[in-house]
Amino acid sequence: MEKEIIEHVAYIKSSKNRYKVLKSLNKGMKIPSEIASETDIRLNHISALLKDLKEHNFVLCLNEEDSKGRMYVLTDTGKTVLNILQ
């Protein structure tokens, strides 16, 4: 396994909430409130987690310009890491 993938896996494993968000998004595109409801993580934490995961290229926001109803999906990196962890 290449070093970059190992670093990505370690990054997600270091936070159970990051992993929960990835698992939630594996079921399809979602808005933050759906993720919060599904994972039992407060919405303000979901927003911070999504920002962090987006900066690390695990998730992608499909409608960044919208202030409400932002839709998030997993990137190929996010899918790869989640498959390794499952």
Rank of each mutant, 00 (worst) to 15 (best):
H56C: 07
M71A: 11
I6V: 10
K27P: 07
A48M: 12
L49R: 02
S47D: 11
N44I: 00
K23N: 10
L62C: 11
M71S: 11
A36H: 09
F58R: 13
G69C: 04
H45I: 12
E38L: 10
V9W: 01
Y11N: 05
L82M: 06
T39R: 04
K30Y: 02
S67T: 01
M71G: 08
L60H: 09
L50M: 01
S14P: 15
R42C: 03
Y72F: 04
L22K: 06
S24D: 14
N57G: 08
L53V: 06
M29G: 11
K68I: 14
L53Q: 05
S14V: 08
N17D: 12
K79A: 10
E34H: 11
K54Q: 10
M71N: 12
S33W: 07
K68D: 15
K20N: 10
D76N: 06
K13P: 14
H56R: 06
H45G: 09
V21P: 13
N83V: 03
D76M: 00
S15P: 07
K13E: 08
E65I: 10
N26R: 14
G69F: 02
I12H: 03
M71Q: 13
P32W: 05
N26K: 14
K79P: 03
I84R: 09
I6P: 06
E64R: 02
V21W: 09
S14C: 13
S67C: 01
D40Y: 05
L74R: 03
I46A: 00
R42Q: 04
R70D: 08
E34T: 11
I31E: 15
D76T: 02
S14R: 08
N83E: 09
I41M: 10
M71F: 08
L22V: 12
E55C: 01
A36E: 07
H56G: 06
L85V: 13
D76V: 02
V9F: 05
K20F: 09
I84G: 08
E65K: 02
T39F: 05
L49K: 01
G28W: 05
H56K: 06
I6T: 07
L85W: 03
G69P: 01
M1K: 11
S47H: 09
I12C: 07
H45Y: 03
G69Y: 00
S15D: 14
S15I: 05
H45S: 13
L85I: 15
N17M: 02
L22P: 08
